[in-house]
Every structure is written in structure tokens, then in C-alpha cells.
Amino acid sequence: MNQLAVPVLARYVRVLPQSWNGSLCMRLEVLGCPVPDPVNVQYQRNEATPVDYLEFRHHSYSEMVELIKSVNAECPNITSVYSLGRSSKGLDIMAMIISGNPTEHEIGEPELRFTAGLHGNEAVGRELLLLLMQFLCKEFRDRNPRVQRLVEGVRIHLVPSLNPDGHVEAFRAVGVTWGWHG
């Protein structure tokens, strides 16, 4: 564990792992706060702009697959869909790559994988990754410079449901009663 002795004001933080124990897994926690000077151009340029075109709702497995395929069809130049394998009940564990060149590993390009849905009844992470897919695709097409830099500079793997069997069971058990279809 490494902690910085004093706070650092930085636009980017680069993490360069030197070694690992057992597996290639890293946990990183970065706490940040906005720069208090509102006239600072750098701060204003990095602010996120809220969007209202995304609809938050819970998707069944088949709806999730359909959504992943539709995002891939909308942005075929920056997305690629692949399967991590099949669940014990035969469902595809689907993943999407979002990158400037999604079908190739580029030397020096960082790769991130965001995984959700390890437990079937944890639906929020799944929905957030589905929203992230849609957001990155639309904002890239709309030429959002911040999203374009991200997509061109990082290879992002999104796995919205690592346990599709568990989600199907939880979805079936809870169903309309708890508003999963809302």
C-alpha cells in the first residue's frame, strides 16, 4: 500500500505496477475534490455534463444482449463484442470492448476491465455498465472531445453480467413485485 504524504494537484495520475503477488489484479482508490477556483479553465473543461437521453431501467438477460448488440451496431468502429464463455446454464457471458481500435491490442495502450453482476441480485452495477456503453458510443459519435480522448487512449472492456444465471434467477424471483421492470 502506498499513500501520498501530501495532497497532489494533478490532471492525470499514472499508476505503474512494478510487481504482483499471485495474480494480475490491482485495487486503486483515488480520492479527489474539485479545484476551488471557478475561473480555472482546466477545472471547467473537466467537469462532467449531465445527460438526459439515457434511460435507467433494469434489463432482463435477453434485453441486455439486445442492448449490447444495438450499441455495437451503432458504433461498430469503436466497439467489439465477445464472449468470456458460457455460464453453467449455457448463457453467454458477454463483454464489449470500447476503443479507437477495438479488435487489436496496441502496445502501450492501457486496458481496463469493468465487471459487474458477480452476484445475481446485484443489478445496479450491470445497469451502470450498460449505461456507460450507451454514453460512450453516443458521446463519441457526437464528437465529445473528452470521450474521444478516452476512447482513443484506453481499451475498455465492459462485462455487465459475470453471473447471468444468478441474475435470471433473481429477476424471476423478484420480477414486477419490486419494480425491476420499471
Rank of each mutant, 00 (worst) to 15 (best):
R11E: 14
E104P: 05
L118G: 12
D37T: 00
C75Q: 08
I93P: 05
P164I: 01
M96H: 06
R11T: 06
M1Y: 05
W20C: 13
N40D: 11
V39C: 09
G100S: 08
M96S: 07
D37N: 10
L28C: 12
N2W: 04
W20I: 06
G153P: 08
N163R: 10
G32E: 09
L112M: 15
V124S: 15
N72D: 14
Y43N: 09
M96F: 03
G175P: 00
F140Q: 05
I107D: 12
E104C: 09
D165L: 02
I97V: 14
Q18Y: 06
Q148C: 13
D165Q: 04
P110Q: 05
V151I: 08
D142L: 06
M96Q: 08
V168Y: 00
P145I: 07
N77T: 12
L118P: 00
P102V: 02
G179D: 03
L150K: 07
A5Y: 02
L4V: 13
H157P: 03
S88F: 02
R146K: 14
H119W: 05
G182M: 08
V30S: 04
L118H: 13
L118F: 10
L67I: 05
N40F: 06
G90I: 03
N77M: 12
V8G: 11
V151D: 11
S60F: 04
V35T: 11
L132V: 11
H119P: 04
L67R: 08
A116K: 00
V30W: 02
G182A: 11
S60Q: 01
E127Q: 09
V35Q: 13
Y12M: 13
F171P: 03
G90K: 02
S60I: 01
L112R: 06
N72K: 09
S23L: 14
G85A: 10
V30D: 10
